[in-house]
């Protein structure tokens, strides 16, 4: 999924560029619009359902996020409710849960990044190294497959394997003479379970992008290095890695940019009252406060804070990446 975003960023880039060009030729601006509309009214017409979708389900929610600054009441609606200023933001920042949420969210993301980012690269390089054949295709097929397992099933599998009573992990521990461990009941275990089950599920999928990038490297480079007597490790270090570096940088930017957006679905399912100390993250907190406790304004404020921080992170990381490396390294 992440790789698609790189495309998204470049759309952003081209759209911004386009606007700049458009303002320079202001005179033909209106004329061009009219002419285009008259010629292609059918194309504009078929876009209407899709545009309405984005208006209703993306842009209206964006504007009604204003309830973060209001005392929202169902009766008065989004725009009729009285203003509350930064009350809910202050409430959130001064709440002791704030630091726990930030710590858990950042902790899970950083752990995922440190472990989950290099493994697909290593996997892709290894797969690229071996001969084409059944083993290679089979390994790719098998490692890619967990991507298609739903979050519910993945979490269920994790729980079954780690179950203190039935789980095969604990049966193994018992066979070694250890006491069974209730892994999901120990807060310190939660980040590991979250991250490694994610590695299990997504590494094969993420490796596909790197494999494609590796396949795009000119084979002559590898051959030349080989003839010059380079060992396989040297070829990987000096040909393969530089060749896929642009892809690595882009994916790294995207990952760092979404540090504060840990996915709701899996964390929520893995959560239980025993591990809540490390498993409560911003998105699960928003869900509980907002929909279970019906505190809409407060939950929206927390969510808005999260969205804004994410956007700032992404923009910052992107510009840093552009400054420290070649001009083409960034997303836009």
């Amino acid at each position: 999924m992440r790789i698609f975003r790189s495309q998204a960023r470049s759309e952003y880039k081209s759209a911004v560029g386009q606007q700049r060009v458009a303002s320079q030729i202001e005179t033909s601006h209106w004329y061009k619009a009219k002419r285009s509309f008259r010629r292609h009214w059918q194309l504009y017409l078929i876009m209407v359902p899709g545009l309405l979708y984005f208006l209703i389900f993306k842009y209206i929610p964006m504007s009604s996020a204003v309830i973060a600054f209001k005392e929202y009441s169902v009766v008065q609606g989004v725009w009729g409710s009285p203003w509350a200023g930064f009350k809910y933001f202050n409430l959130f920042f001064s709440n002791p849960v704030f630091w726990t949420l930030i710590k858990n969210t950042l902790g899970l993301s950083l752990y995922s990044l440190v472990v989950g980012f290099p493994i697909p690269i290593i996997l892709a390089i290894c797969l690229n190294e071996i001969r084409d054949g059944f083993f290679k295709r089979f390994t790719q097929l098998v490692t890619y497959a967990p991507y298609f397992i739903s979050t519910v099933i993945l979490v269920s599998m994790t729980m079954l394997l780690l179950s203190p009573r039935l789980g095969v992990v604990n049966l193994g521990l018992q066979a070694l003479g250890q006491q069974p461990i209730n892994f999901l009941g120990i807060p310190n275990m939660f980040p590991g379970i979250y991250v490694w089950s994610g590695v299990w599920q997504f590494s094969g999928y993420a490796a596909v992008v790197y494999l494609a990038a590796l396949a795009g490297i000119d084979p002559q480079l590898r051959e030349a290095a080989r003839i010059d007597g380079a060992s396989r490790i040297q070829i990987i270090r000096n040909v393969d890695l530089p060749g896929i570096m642009p892809v690595i940088v882009i994916l790294l930017i995207l990952n760092v940019g979404s540090l504060l957006s840990v996915g709701f679905e899996k964390v929520f399912l893995l959560q239980n009252p025993l591990n809540l100390a490390t498993s409560e993250v911003i998105s699960t907190y928003v869900y509980k406060i907002g929909l279970l406790n019906a505190n809409f304004s407060f939950a929206t404020a927390v969510g808005l804070f999260n969205s804004v921080v994410n956007m700032i992170l992404l923009v910052t990381v992107n510009s840093v990446a552009k400054r420290v490396s070649d001009s083409d390294a960034g997303l836009w």
Partner: peptide, 19 residues
């Protein structure tokens, strides 16, 4: 651009639910 922007920024869970 407007469509791509929805990937960068969203109103969040509660506003979408309200819609």
């Amino acid at each position: 651009f407007l469509i791509t922007f929805t990937l960068l920024f969203s109103g969040g869970l509660i506003p979408t639910y309200l819609v």
